[in-house]
């Protein structure tokens, strides 16, 4: 009871309020959706689409302005993918890894930089789409599907041989890995972004002036790093599935 009183005091504060676990529910038939996640994700997608169209509208050999920026991004993504998957196989995976990186990065930074809270929703609040466990799990499961697909396409049923390598004793651990990979991917991203927003929220609540600035900057840094980590790990998993443990070790 005492706790609930405290909650009410906090909610009545005008400057900032923490709002964890409240969602703007939409109904689609008998499906339930988190509206605020979709709203911000559409904003992020729109931003990416506008940037892509602006960059490719009038491509030139000597890039300028937005084309230069997007080429830099693309080269960065290509390098990342090439380093993890290898020169031979990386090209078809650039769009997937790249979109993972761009979507997470823009989502995180939009959550950290844009004052979403100024837009009032009937329930819940706008925040980075990666702030919601559904988004991160969706991305992590897509990554799992991607590396299964990559493994089976490259090596057929031989891909399953990796579960009994180097010895069949490790079979349970190898199977467990397929579950821990998406779990760690999604929870790492979700936890970092949510924790960052909570820390900033708490600090703003306590000292709504100057003091939260370093933490906000740290939040920007973390957000960028988390996007990089997610994309890199996804590329590593795909690269692993394509190379295979056995062959990989024989090469060395």
């Amino acid at each position: 009871m005492h706790m609930l009183d405290g909650l009410n005091i906090i909610n009545s504060l005008p400057l900032a309020a923490l709002d964890v676990g409240h969602h703007l529910y939409w109904r689609l038939g008998n499906l339930q959706l988190h509206g605020q996640v979709f709203l911000t994700s559409w904003f992020v997608i729109g931003l990416l689409l506008i940037a892509s169209i602006a960059a490719t509208r009038n491509v030139q050999r000597i890039p300028r302005g937005i084309q230069n920026l997007m080429e830099y991004a693309l080269e960065f993504i290509r390098d990342l993918t090439k380093n993890q998957i290898g020169e031979k196989e990386y090209r078809p995976w650039v769009p997937f890894i790249g979109t993972l990186f761009l979507f997470i990065f823009v989502s995180n930074w939009s959550g950290a930089l844009l004052p979403w809270k100024l837009i009032h929703l009937p329930s819940g609040e706008l925040a980075a789409p990666t702030n919601d466990i559904n988004t991160t799990v969706a991305l992590a499961l897509l990554t799992s599907l991607a590396y299964f697909y990559a493994g089976f396409r490259k090596r057929g049923l031989g891909y399953l041989a990796k579960y009994v390598q180097p010895t069949p004793i490790l079979l349970p651990i190898n199977i467990l890995e397929d579950f821990t990979k998406p779990l760690s991917l999604s929870f790492r991203l979700f936890g970092n972004i949510l924790a960052d927003e909570l820390v900033v929220g708490v600090l703003v609540l306590l000292v709504p002036f100057i003091i939260p600035m370093p933490v906000m900057l740290l939040g920007l840094f973390t957000s960028a790093i988390q996007a990089l980590v997610f994309a890199t790990l996804a590329a590593v998993y795909i690269g692993e599935a394509i190379e295979g443990h056995g062959e990989h070790e024989e090469e060395h």
Binding site: L31, N134, A138
Partner: peptide
């Protein structure tokens, strides 16, 4: 259970992401 509130957001987000790709 609101923080780990899984619902149709997950598959729709996945579909949306694939379309974005």
């Amino acid at each position: 259970g609101k923080l780990f509130d899984f619902d149709a957001t997950l598959p729709l987000m996945a579909i949306q992401f694939v379309i974005l790709v």
